[in-house]
Design a protein around this nucleic acid. Sequence first.
DNA 1: TTAATAGTGTCTTTGAGACATTATACT
DNA 2: AGTATAATGTCTCAAAGACACTATTAA
Lengths: 276, 276
Amino acid sequence: MRRTNSETQNGWWRRVDSTPDTEGFLAGYDPRAYDPIAVTVDVVALTIRDAQLQVLLVRRGEPPFQGSWALPGGFVRPSQAPDGTKTEEDLAQTAARELAEEAGASLRPSHLEQLGSYGAPGRDPRMRVISVAYLAFAPGLPEAMPGSDAADARWTPVNALDPRTLAFDHAAILADGVDRARSKLEYTPLATAFVTEPFTITELREVYETVWGEKLHAGNFHRKVLSVPGFVESTGSHTETGGPRGGPRAKLYRRGDATLLHPALLRPATEAELRP
Amino acid sequence: MRRTNSETQNGWWRRVDSTPDTEGFLAGYDPRAYDPIAVTVDVVALTIRDAQLQVLLVRRGEPPFQGSWALPGGFVRPSQAPDGTKTEEDLAQTAARELAEEAGASLRPSHLEQLGSYGAPGRDPRMRVISVAYLAFAPGLPEAMPGSDAADARWTPVNALDPRTLAFDHAAILADGVDRARSKLEYTPLATAFVTEPFTITELREVYETVWGEKLHAGNFHRKVLSVPGFVESTGSHTETGGPRGGPRAKLYRRGDATLLHPALLRPATEAELRP
DNA sequence: TTAATAGTGTCTTTGAGACATTATACT
DNA sequence: AGTATAATGTCTCAAAGACACTATTAA
């Protein structure tokens, strides 16, 4: 149906004032007379800790799904509060704010992108809720979770997670987020979002190995990364020491200016992914 | 902020009943006391007609943006209407329905995927509106638009379109949709969604040339398509006649069973796309 | 001294692209 | 006949991957 027709035809969004000027149009809506739709923003925040891909989860303190773990998120603030305060906020800003409030201001994701929206009827038992999911990459924090607005938030290894323990359809959202991360490593330099600068080529390779879940050939990976224009750029310095079990000191790099990798770092195609 | 906290802390979604059981929780919301957020679904429907990439647009009959062209779309139906009717509908179903109602039931997109959500404050002057955009591919229809629910709907060449004539932020949504289509042709067999079966390799090449906007080498393209497992499969038959200006009759193919192209059909990298 | 690691060298295979060639069918 | 097109062949170059090798550092 056309938006302009739906307003008058089915009464969902009723036009009280029938004059076609904009003023009357704006005043004519009375959506409060009908069942509302809520919009939330949920965040799949990924990091690498202890050589594992981990996701930030918060424990729900109230029903529904009380006691279950869930993705951090919250309702989108409407444009006007009951007290008249204007709080205009973009969806991405909402995602960043939710993340900071859940995990503490110290969690500054180095990458944040929209993942997709989830709006199946019944995904929230209370009402129709459309959730706009965001995907965040953060470098691994050596310390534990900093002081946080949410008492019960923690990083959880994705592999050691029973999907059935997640609230709502968050298991599906998480799976989509991990899929997105895996494929984005192929043709974007986003692996650098998981490490802190400066970093070594080996650290970068460990990002790929952790997210993809497979060992890569160190020598070939090294040469390949350096051959992609703009992926990384040298800092000119080395690590202070060699590895914990020996080996020469590694050269240090920072992020390059490329937005796409060309040629890409393709993972070997799995037959199962190519065919249904 | 955590979802469970936001409900009590800032009063956006007020809990009237403080007992923590689910029943009380469900009854406790009173979102009608606050400014609502509306959710719409808009569709970027692309096809190829007259060797041009075209998008389906509808003319708005009412303000805002009265007289402007817009993407087909409409409000998402809440789970319960005022008369008590339950209308449970998925977001993708909503997109398909909007498309059918705008362009007539004959428009059956051969591909429909979610493109992204657009929720910047002020993108709709009436109220806060979150739009979930979908991307649809349809084979070119030789006839004009069939009898339709919307009187003023038409296919428009994307290139000959002044973005300023589009309502809301639909120019940005359209640009994102075209970008997505261009890159999806590289690593998925979705070019076949723009043609009707059976098709020739030349028809498939014309899809790539039209969407990418550049000529491809016919011979190399031919060999490449046939070398990708599962992209197309032969029907064993030929076209009835040769081309309008001569040439042998072409073999006919149908879609294969691949979901990803391996190896992919990469377009030559533009330097401007790799660097900022 | 032993072992592990960073980084480089070499070879093979695959694939992309430029270009040529053959066969077919329309005007 | 002349021309356009479908389909295939050939050659070159780039890149991925397997493997080897050297240099450097920690235990």
